[in-house]
Amino acid sequence: MAFLTSMERITDDRSARYRASTASIWIAVARFALLALCTLCAGASVAADESPQDIEQRVKAAFLFKFGGYVEWPERVFPRNDSPLVIGVAGADVLAEELSRIASGRTMNGRPVTVRRIRSGEPVTGVHVLFISRSEAGRLGELLPTTQGQPVLTVTETEKGLAQGSVINFVVADNRVRFEVSLAAANRNGLRIGAPLLAVAQRVQEKAQ
C-alpha cells in the first residue's frame, strides 16, 4: 500500500507540469484525474510486472529530484543562473532511469536537471547530488571520502550511511520510504539543508558521530 501511495506521488509529480492559471486549473485537474485513472490502471499492470524493489526505487528517484528544492549549494558551484543541477547516480539502474524520466523537461529552482550515471572507477566530479545505491555499498568507502568537503549532497540507502559520511540516507519505516539527514555532513560539504526538509526527515543527526 505504501508503494501505491508512492506511485500516486510520482504521477502527482508528473501532473504538476500542468501548470496553468487558477481559473483553468480544475479543468486540468479533471482532465488529469481521467489521465491518472488510465495511467493508474496501466501502472497497476506495470506494477504487477514490477517488483516492490522497483517501486521503492521509483519513489526514491522522486525524492532525489525533490531534495534539490530544499538544499542550498554554494554559489560558486553554479557558474550561471541556468547552469544545470547534476544528479549523479551510482548503480541503481531502475532509479536512474526513472529519475531521468522525471527530470526530463523540468527545472529545479530554474535550473534544468540532468542525470549522470557514475560507473565504477569514474571520478565523481561536476555532480551536485550523488546517490550511491545499496548495490554500490562496497564503493562507499571510496566514493564518500572523495566528496567530503565538496559541495555535493550525498545520498545513500544503507543502514550506516550517515555514519559513513553521507548527508542523506534513505530508510524504510512502516513500508514507507523515509530519510535521515546529517547536518554535520551537510556543513562539512558546505550545504544548507532547508528546515522543511529537516522537519519531514525521520531523523536529523546534528553532530558527527
Binding site: T5, F63, G69, Y70, V177, G194, P196, V200
Partner: peptide
C-alpha cells in the same frame, strides 16, 4: 500550506 509543502512532497502525513 508553506509548512506542509515538504510534508506533501515527501509524503509525510503525520507532519
Amino acid at each position: 500550506g508553506r509548512a506542509s509543502a515538504a510534508a506533501l512532497q515527501f509524503d509525510d502525513r503525520k507532519f
